[in-house]
Amino acid sequence: MKLWLLAAVAAVSGTQASAQRGGDPVTVPVTVEVIGTGSVEIKAAAQRIAVTFSGRGATMAAAEAARSRKEGQVLALLAAEGVPATAILPLPESEQTRMSLLGSLGTMGATTADQGASEDATEEARGGRIVQAATMAQVDTLTRKLKAIGVQVGTPAASFEGVAAARRDARLGALRDARVGADRYAVALGMKVGGVRRVSETGDGPVMPGLQEKLSTMLATGSPSILPRLAETPKESATIYESVVAEFALLP
């Protein structure tokens, strides 16, 4: 449902007052500020998952050889599932460090039997790749099959294209929404909208108008369901919201 909240920032700056200027009456127009909100939904271009694996051995050379064998298993599985080589990317160094730390914590206190290695396998070599899947269904399939061969799979993260264009379209929708709000005020006051005097994407306060509107809604409704939605990870699509503040003149 298209959001439009008039966030009664209706700044009535006059009341059809009249003044005298050179003997002729001058009408001071009523103005109203309205927050308009627009939204555009965009589809995910791909789903990215971090795939990590390791090899263990009595020496680092043996561990690296074991890691290479595991990597071969991973690449063969991905090829069998139709993942093109161009969708298999190097694992960023930051992700390698994080997964290495998690792996070390996970093996603390574990027995060699738990780790599936001999007592001489004291060295470990880790590796990984970023895999781009086309859909969440493919992510689910890959995750299940990779875990079955002892590979760690991270939480999927959606990547999006065309975000800048979507934001521009959402702002235009927000401007149209603001005009609808101005029309509502004009009808309530028995007046008509004369034109736009000012448009701002940032508003006048320290809080962006879109966030200001969301916080106002949360306080007004007391809805506990707003906060969890803010932390949701995008899946197949995401909705881009933009808000503008527009000032309109109202005429008799």
Rank of each mutant, 00 (worst) to 15 (best):
M1R: 03
K2N: 04
L3R: 05
L5K: 00
A8F: 08
A10D: 07
A11Y: 02
V12H: 08
A17N: 11
S18D: 00
S18N: 01
Q20G: 05
G23M: 01
P25W: 08
T27R: 12
V30T: 15
T31R: 15
S39M: 14
V40N: 07
A44N: 10
R48Y: 02
I49S: 09
V51I: 08
V51Y: 04
T52G: 08
R56M: 14
M60R: 12
A61Y: 07
A62H: 06
E64F: 05
E64P: 03
A65L: 12
A66H: 07
S68K: 11
E71R: 12
Q73V: 02
V74R: 05
G82P: 01
P84K: 01
T86W: 00
I88K: 06
L91V: 08
P92V: 11
S94Q: 15
S94P: 04
M99H: 12
S104Q: 14
L105D: 12
G106L: 11
M108N: 10
G109L: 09
G109M: 10
G109E: 10
Q115I: 13
Q115T: 13
Q115E: 14
G116H: 15
A117K: 08
A117I: 13
S118N: 13
E119R: 12
T122L: 10
E123A: 11
G128Q: 03
I130Q: 08
V131T: 07
Q132S: 04
A133M: 10
T135Y: 03
T141E: 13
T143W: 06
V151M: 11
G154I: 06
P156K: 04
A157P: 00
F160S: 01
E161G: 08
G162N: 04
A164M: 02
A166L: 05
G173R: 14
A174E: 02
R179K: 08
G181A: 03
A182K: 05
D183M: 05
R184D: 08
Y185K: 00
V187H: 09
A188S: 13
R197D: 11
R198T: 01
S200A: 01
E201D: 12
T202Q: 05
T202L: 01
V207M: 07
P209C: 06
P209M: 05
L211V: 15
L211E: 12
E213L: 11
E213T: 14
T217S: 09
M218N: 06
S223Y: 01
S223W: 01
S223I: 01
P224K: 02
P224W: 00
I226T: 04
R229K: 09
L230R: 02
L230N: 03
A231T: 06
P234S: 10
P234Q: 02
P234N: 06
K235S: 15
A238C: 06
T239Y: 01
I240Y: 07
E242Q: 14
S243L: 04
V244M: 09
V245L: 13
A246R: 02
A249T: 15
L250K: 10
P252F: 04
